[in-house]
């Protein structure tokens, strides 16, 4: 069965890149450009994993993470940010992984695979 991955990022190009790469890797990809939309999407089941950006204009990733955890405690979430400093915020520790954005998506794909198995 094909896993569905929700990619949350307000950068359209990043979303597009992740979509292509993850689809190439055999996943079904759903996109959200802000945190609220992501929470909406998770409500209608079918999301197996979330890749969540932190810095977003409408509702940042940390608040989104809190809401997602409240909704579904077992939903794996990977925080994916251009900033390393959020790693020190214990609110980010609710997430299953914290990865810094890179043009090389091999690490991200590896983590997704690890969490889904």
């Amino acid at each position: 069965m094909v896993s569905t991955i929700l990619v949350v990022d307000d950068e359209v190009n990043i979303c597009k890149l992740y979509e292509r790469e993850l689809e190439d890797a055999g996943y079904k990809v759903v996109l959200a450009n802000d945190g609220r939309k992501a929470v909406e999407l998770v409500k209608n089941n079918g999301i197996d994993l979330v890749v969540l950006d932190i810095r977003m204009d409408k509702q940042d990733g940390i608040e989104t993470l809190r809401q997602l955890v409240k909704q579904k405690r077992d939903l794996p979430v990977i925080l994916n940010s251009a900033y390393s400093s959020y790693r020190m915020d214990f609110n980010t520790w609710w997430a299953d992984a914290y990865l810094i954005k890179s043009s090389n998506l091999e690490e991200l794909k590896g983590k997704i695979q690890e969490l889904l198995t």
């Binding site: 950068e11 990043i14 890149l17 954005k101 890179s102 090389n104 998506l105």
Partner: peptide, 17 residues
């Protein structure tokens, strides 16, 4: 630097793709 990271990620990502 942070602002640069996002464009570089998509730039580099698409080139790899």
């Amino acid at each position: 630097a942070h602002e640069i990271r996002n464009p570089i990620v998509s730039f580099g990502g698409f080139v790899r793709l």
